[in-house]
Computed example of a mutant assay.
Amino acid sequence: MYKIAITIALFLTTMLQAQTTYESGMTKAFTLWEDGKMAEASNVFERIASAEKENWLPSYYAAQVLILDGFSILKEKEALDAQLKKAQVFVDAAASRSKDNAEIMVLQALLHTVYVASDGATYGMTLSGKINALYTKANQLTPGNPRVMLSKAEWDMGSARFFGQDTQPFCAQIEKSLQLFANFKPETAFDPNWGEDRAKQLTAACKAE
């Protein structure tokens, strides 16, 4: 019994240490991201992903850092292409660890959107259908997910502006997503919980038009 107790204690200690390492690593990565150190943050998320073989979240965030940063370097073709290719590797890794995950589908759609934003003539025709399909499937999987509604509405709004169409129907969808954000509860402390600030920003912009 004594040996069993020691074994259990050692097991629990190891689990707690692993959890602490994971949590501290994720916190460090988010801090780097908040400080604008995109490459460093992505690298920390990547290292965590290497240790957390079954966890999709580190790969998800390693990709998200690079994808969102991609919007700031749209005109730097070679750098953007290299960054998005690296991000795609992380998206694929996250998807392999969590099948039919709406959050990952939104991320993949955002990656495609960066390509379209950088060169609509080249990527618009080939990726627009894929983006719409990703949002449709994500909505089927999690119809109450605010990031799905927000991201799809913002994509549709951008498309409407490009073709000179009315954007107000999509403004309404973005405002509606705020209701979903108000009631959304992530499963864990590190599960995706972003988007509400963006929804508020876009809603304010819609009302100012």
Rank of each mutant, 00 (worst) to 15 (best):
R198T: 13
L110G: 02
G158R: 08
Q19V: 02
M125Q: 08
G195M: 01
D69K: 02
I174V: 15
T27V: 09
S59F: 03
T20G: 07
T31P: 10
A205L: 10
A95Y: 03
M157I: 06
V91E: 03
L202H: 04
W56L: 01
G158D: 11
Y61F: 12
W155M: 13
A51G: 15
K37D: 12
V114W: 05
R198Y: 07
Q88L: 15
N183K: 10
K75D: 15
N145L: 08
P192Y: 02
V106Y: 01
M105K: 06
K37T: 07
N139C: 02
A117W: 04
G158T: 09
V91L: 07
T113G: 11
A205Q: 12
T27S: 15
A204L: 04
L150H: 12
W194C: 06
G129S: 14
V65S: 09
G25W: 06
I73G: 11
V65R: 07
G124N: 05
F190L: 09
L57Y: 01
A133G: 04
G70H: 00
K77L: 08
W33T: 06
T126N: 14
A79Y: 09
T21Y: 14
L150R: 07
G129C: 12
A189C: 03
L74A: 12
T20I: 00
A51T: 13
A117F: 10
I4W: 09
I48A: 12
L84T: 12
L107T: 07
A117S: 13
F11L: 14
N145G: 08
T20L: 00
L180W: 00
G144S: 13
N55M: 00
A160S: 12
V65E: 08
P143F: 03
M125R: 10
F45M: 04
D197V: 08
T142R: 08
L141G: 03
